[in-house]
Design a binder for these strands. Sequence first.
DNA 1: GTAGTACCTCTGCAGGACGC
DNA 2: GCGTCCTGCAGAGGTACTAC
Length: 212
Amino acid sequence: MDRIGTDESGKGDYYGPLVVAAVYVGKGDDRKLRNMGVRDGKKLRDDRVLSLERKIKDGFEHDVVRISPGKYNALYDKLGNLNVMLAWAHARAIENLLPRVICDMVVSDQFGDERFLEERLMDEGRKVRLVQRPRAESDLAVAAASILARAAYLRFLKGMRMKYGVIFPKGAVEVYEAGKTFIELYGLARLGEVAKLHFKTTEKIKENLKQL
DNA sequence: GTAGTACCTCTGCAGGACGC
DNA sequence: GCGTCCTGCAGAGGTACTAC
């Protein structure tokens, strides 16, 4: 069955962007994806993710929405809710992809209330059937999207490392040292350029600085 | 307010497959 | 047989939302 799969990356990471990807998978494409070795991007090593990214981009219609940390913090202040922001980003990726494909079904991960995304799409006049479910990565269309999102996240993180000369760890553990280094180099006011400020991690980094 | 459940990330460990 | 790689699972860190 043809469908669009969507997934996000960077949601649980303190540093770096939030990325949402959408991939269109047509009838009979599942076998192609399976043969390529596509599965949940979270379960693949970084180098494998980057090699699969090229194959997916070459073989399938897709769209990737990147929300930089600065834009992320501004949107979070405005929307006040991570799930609303996620819905906005998923809808954006779907909207960008729909003009290029003929498809009325979208499969995505469960995040909050599915009405968030449905309402966003209806606002744009899109008539698609939305299927939101836990562990949606078991669907190959969602798995392909998770790989594109993950690859875009990794590239963005690499770009930040080149720009600021600081190695930003993934996840939300062991991020304090990088935060301390960044603030020493660029100041606390610019932390929002590289990190998601609403994480409790921000307060912990500030507390660590006070103790020094 | 708290517990449960959904998502994300990471590391570490164990078991199987594969090549030398 | 041994070393390497892949895969799956568990646990710990983060987030939000819902139900009680």
